[in-house]
Design a binder for these strands. Structure first.
Length: 257
DNA sequence: ATGCCGCCCGTAGGGCGA
């Protein structure tokens, strides 16, 4: 028996629904965390997922953002957003699945380092850090997965020189990511696939995918207690090559039990 | 590069993403 958890920024669940259902049917993960569903809760196609044997937790909003967790096992103790942080942007969703605390995150993009959105990203991350710290104190078995909008190191960037200092790779953003790890989390892809330089996002423009001009910005972080049973972490590039794809592709973590 | 591409809302074209 093994447990598999995945994350995928789908860039509109309305447009990508058939792809998500096909991917679920093929891979049959235990958990799939979705970001940028871009729809209100009432429009979430719950029945399409229950038909495949999945439970749903969703925190949506009109037009932008929106996160969901798809799970074979029931989703318990569902918490929407970051408690105590009244953020109208729906970016965080937590639930307990088979004794594992799972947090789905969609970190703000940041636009550019000289923008208000960058300041929001850094402030938002401070709130996330406090929330994660509290969560880890209560849940030694925690997985935090999603679109972090941060490439942790230069080897996660197709052209580090061109990206130097830019949003998604800036020193302050990387310090945020490091601070998260310092709370007691491991970047499972880096830990389990140290030589793999795959990316999880490629720009729609300028044939970004064909030229492999990508970034690794979608991550699955896990506590030490989870790492003891982590077997593999991989990036499934295939959906990025499908017709009308999301600009992100799924990341999958496999646990031994 | 105010660019590129794709999605949203809404039915034109600006906001946003990364």
């Amino acid at each position: 028996m093994s447990t598999r958890l995945a994350t995928w920024n789908v860039n509109s669940l309305r447009v990508r629904l058939e792809q998500v259902l096909a991917w679920l049917s093929e891979h049959q993960p235990d958990v799939l965390a979705l970001q940028e569903i871009k729809m209100i809760d009432e429009l979430f196609p719950v029945e399409a997922f229950t038909a495949l044997g999945y439970h749903i937790a969703v925190s949506g909003q009109p037009t932008y953002n929106g996160v969901a967790i798809v799970s074979r096992a029931p989703l318990l103790d569902v918490v929407m957003g970051i408690p105590g942080y009244d953020d109208p942007q729906k970016r965080v969703l937590a639930a307990t699945v088979s004794g594992l605390r799972v947090i789905c995150v969609y970190v703000p993009n940041g636009a550019s380092v000289d923008s208000d959105k960058y300041d929001y990203k850094l402030q938002w991350f401070e709130r996330l850090l406090a929330y994660v710290k509290n969560t880890l104190a209560a849940h030694p078995q925690t997985i935090i997965l999603g679109d972090y909008n941060i490439a942790p190191e230069d080897r996660d960037v197709h052209d580090p020189l061109a990206w130097q200092g830019q949003v998604l790779v800036s020193a302050k953003e990387r310090a945020c990511f490091k601070a998260l790890l310092a709370l007691g989390l491991h970047d499972t892809f880096r830990a389990l696939a140290p030589e793999d330089n795959s990316y999880t996002w490629w720009d729609y423009r300028m044939n970004g995918f064909k030229r492999n001009r990508g970034l690794r910005i979608d991550h699955i972080l896990a506590t030490k207690d989870v790492m003891t049973r982590a077997k593999s972490c991989s990036i499934d590039k295939l959906p990025r090559a499908w017709d009308r794809p999301s600009d992100h592709t799924p990341v999958i973590l496999q646990l031994s039990a």
